[in-house]
């Protein structure tokens, strides 16, 4: 503690105020973490549980790298994102979610030894979606739920940022300028020992600057297995889950206004994501490592390397 801080604490009135402020801050933090989060998939948000009148907040840091470049330009893309997700339970069946990513991207091109870097950072387009649970079957220590999801990505961020070389490529813009919508279904089966979540979704990507972005079909599956404690004690113990997730995605080629398909867009990817998740009564911390298993990308598209996804979740 510095001298100035010591002098402040020595003043009884200020000391009292500081103590009160400290107690208030601790109380607020305690209030935030005194609520809990639950097991749910790490790599997708549609299965996040939220009760009526309650909020859930998830924060995830995703460190992504792409590098294997079949084009011969030695391109590599570094994309780090901080993704904030807030959900609200409008009723026991209906929940609304908002997703706001902040990203920092660096594209490096090294054709014939001429190194060029292009950078961008800022808030990306937000996504909002709703989930409606239309089937539920509860038993002792287990539950089966099926819900429909629908949402949109709003193209409100800039898609025309420039640097000294000109307009930045779409891959590192904050937005692609297109209004995208998606719909699908998510299933959750949970017991004391494990949880299985599966999601199927179809994304209708929009059009911008004469380019109709290819649509995407995606299937996500997540298994969370309780590794600790092996035997349930009384009360509500914290759970450590081992997590294994698989993401299959297929995107069609982009289509230009004159009906020409892009040879460098679309393809199929499969990611396998092992991870860990600790769920206490008060908070959750989670991390997964996303490994690309299959990357059948059209043309000289950049291939993904592994991604690290880590974060926390708090229910208010």
């Amino acid at each position: 503690m510095g001298i100035r801080a010591k002098n402040l604490m020595a003043n009884p009135r200020l000391s009292g105020s500081l103590k009160a402020a400290t107690i208030t801050i601790i109380a607020v933090i305690n209030q935030i973490v005194s609520n809990i989060a639950s097991a749910a998939p790490i790599t997708f948000n549609t299965a996040l549980p939220v009760a009526k009148g309650e909020f859930v907040w998830r924060e995830q840091l995703v460190l992504g790298r792409s590098g294997k470049d079949p084009s011969g330009q030695n391109r590599s893309l570094k994309a780090d994102r901080l993704i904030s997700v807030v959900g609200y339970g409008a009723s026991a069946k209906l929940a609304f979610f908002g997703v706001l990513p902040y990203s920092k991207r660096k594209l490096t091109l090294n054709p014939a030894g001429m190194n060029t870097q292009r950078n961008n950072a800022g808030i990306d387009d937000p996504t909002v979606f709703a989930r409606y649970q239309f089937y539920k079957k509860d038993g002792t220590g287990q539950t089966l739920r099926l819900a429909g999801i629908a949402g949109v990505k709003l193209p409100i961020m800039r898609d025309t940022r420039r640097d000294t070389l000109g307009t930045l490529p779409t891959a590192i813009q904050q937005s692609n300028g297109a209004f995208d919508s998606f719909f699908g279904a998510v299933l959750t089966y949970q017991t004391f020992d494990f949880q299985l979540d599966s999601q199927i979704s179809y994304r209708l990507n929009g059009t911008e600057n004469g380019l109709n972005y290819g649509n995407e079909t995606k299937i996500d599956t997540s298994l969370q297995y309780r590794m600790w404690p092996r035997d349930l004690s009384s009360g509500v113990p914290g759970f450590l889950y081992g997590v294994l997730e698989v993401t299959w995605a297929q995107k069609t080629r982009d289509l230009s206004q004159n009906g020409v398909t892009s040879d460098t867009s679309g393809g199929t990817t499969v990611f396998l994501s092992p991870g860990l998740q600790y769920v206490s009564k008060r908070y959750i911390i989670e991390a997964a490592f996303q490994v690309p298993l299959v990357q059948n990308l059209n043309g000289p598209a950049l291939e993904n390397k592994s991604r690290l996804r880590t974060g926390f979740r708090i229910n208010f």
């Binding site: 639950s38 002792t140 287990q142 539950t143 949970q190 509500v236 759970f239 769920v279 206490s280 009564k281």
Partner: peptide, 18 residues
């Protein structure tokens, strides 16, 4: 009170809170 569907710490705390 016996509750069905409650199978994780989140569920438990959600019920307690309500």
């Amino acid at each position: 009170v016996k509750v069905e569907g409650m199978s994780c710490p989140f569920c438990a705390h959600g019920v307690e809170k309500k």
